[in-house]
């Protein structure tokens, strides 16, 4: 895999309040290239909100986010989308794939939408899916198993070779074997590509694979065990 030239992910003084609840209260976080960080915490503690803020889907009330040397906060929607496309790769909890498309088409989609060469996109998608053990035939993605779908989602996040990789409960709905497979894939890919990985999970075994573990509670993000 090609090494990324990303300069990591930096989150500084991030605050987000909604309906009187403080979900993020001056969150500070830094993930270096090739490093993996797992964020755990009880349901509703704001773990996914942190990822949504980094992804630019939620605008925080305060704080800055820098990904791949590019500041995400304060960008207009067009430039934010461009930054997201070029810098961030995201694996959603439920994949968010288009079930009618084949796995190759789903994986190639970000490149196609960005106007990239489609032949290259299909070839790269097939390579990624092959590495991840997902069938590359004409079967619609919706007909694949949960593990295959989630691996397809990982491949989609990787095809643009993002500077930062984000994952929101990527193993939440998988059986132990599939969970292991997807977790292994995410951590090794991030390490091999020198790409920072920020992963949100409930699963201690998955979180245990990360270089560092953080816990989010009451809006405060702290190293695991520090709270």
């Amino acid at each position: 895999m090609k090494q990324s030239d990303s300069s990591g992910l930096r989150v500084s003084g991030l605050c987000y309040r909604v309906e009187g609840r403080t979900l993020l209260d001056g969150v500070e976080l830094s993930v270096s290239p090739g490093e993996s960080v797992a964020v755990t915490g009880p349901s509703g503690s704001g773990k996914s909100t942190l990822l949504m803020c980094i992804l630019g889907l939620i605008t925080p009330q305060a704080g800055t986010i820098t990904a791949g040397g590019r500041e995400i906060t304060g960008l207009g929607s067009a430039r934010l989308a461009q930054a997201r496309r070029e810098t961030l790769g995201m694996v959603f909890q439920f994949g968010e794939l288009l079930p009618e498309l084949t796995p190759v088409e789903n994986v190639a989609l970000p490149v196609l939408l960005d106007g990239g060469r489609h032949q290259d996109a299909y070839r790269r998608a097939e390579e990624l899916l092959g590495e991840l053990g997902v069938p590359t035939g004409t079967t619609p993605t919706g007909m694949l198993s949960g593990g295959e779908r989630q691996r397809t989602a990982v491949a989609r996040a990787l095809i643009t070779e993002p500077a930062v990789l984000l994952a929101d409960e990527p193993t939440g709905a998988l059986d132990p074997e599939a969970k292991e497979g997807v977790a292994h894939l995410l951590f090794t890919t991030a390490r091999d590509r020198g790409c920072p990985l920020l992963l949100v999970t409930h699963d201690p075994s998955v979180a245990g694979r990360a270089d560092r573990r953080y816990e989010l509670q009451g809006g405060i993000l702290a190293e695991a065990g520090a709270l």
């Binding site: 288009l98 079930p99 009618e100 498309l101 088409e105 989609l109 196609l112 939408l113 060469r117 489609h118 032949q119 996109a121 299909y122 619609p140």
Partner: peptide, 19 residues
Amino acid sequence: GKRKGHAGRMIGGRWTHAH
């Protein structure tokens, strides 16, 4: 759409085929 790398046509076509 797939041959030409046209994402809209590809998705639209797959949807039409599926639904």
